[in-house]
Design a protein around this nucleic acid. Structure first.
Lengths: 103, 103
DNA sequence: TCGATTGTTCGATATATTTAGAACAATGGA
DNA sequence: TCCATTGTTCTAAATATATCGAACAATCGA
């Protein structure tokens, strides 16, 4: 698999981050990652096609919300907690605290 | 002018709020409202056509971010600060604190 | 080596969003 | 009343986004 691009902390853009989180599936992924740590792609929304999920993970990665790391045939995802908090203090926590329900 | 719909506080949805704020023009409007209080539509982005701005104000209003009130021929906009903070504690402040620059 | 597993990429389609001109509506002042 | 001001609505066009099947790539175990 190819090299995965991750934007550096100082390049994260607020509008991109907000856009990435404005999709219910992606918000759900982020919530799950925040509570369960590092998880492979396959553990999310198993009803949705893999190509759809792959797209959402890419959006999250390019917006700087998650870090992806290949390990074997799996791709592990983790939240870029500290980068986000350094760049946008309190933002992620406020979003995770919100009671919007994770469908 | 017609009656303006404002969603009640408890109906505000996180994904809608995040989407509304993920547009640079709308984020700019919200920032300006937060620092200057109540302002008529005409005071923002005077270079953009009125219809475009009208659209953005509508998106913000329907997402619950702003309250609009007609007064004379003007339409005054204000941030729904307390509603937002009640529904999504800390979210708006975190977004306003972020140093993304208001173009 | 073969096949199963996991995920990506490509291409197509459907849907949503943004932008903006033109016509319209409401208000207020001369 | 007439007109300027302010903003909305309608409509169209451009652009972006979401979804998903099919083909592909990489890894691992048998």
């Amino acid at each position: 698999m190819r090299e995965l691009h991750h934007p550096p902390r100082e390049c994260l853009e607020l509008t991109q981050v907000l856009h990435a989180l404005s999709d219910p599936i992606r918000l759900c992924i982020v919530r799950q990652l925040s509570s369960e740590g590092s998880l492979p792609c396959g553990t999310f929304c198993e009803s949705a096609p893999k190509s759809t999920m792959s797209h959402h993970f890419k959006v999250l990665r390019l917006a700087g919300l998650i870090r992806q790391r290949n390990e074997g045939t799996s791709c592990y995802n983790s939240l870029r907690n500290s980068d986000l908090d350094a760049r946008f203090p309190g933002l992620l926590n406020a979003i995770l605290r919100a009671d919007d329900g994770c469908e």
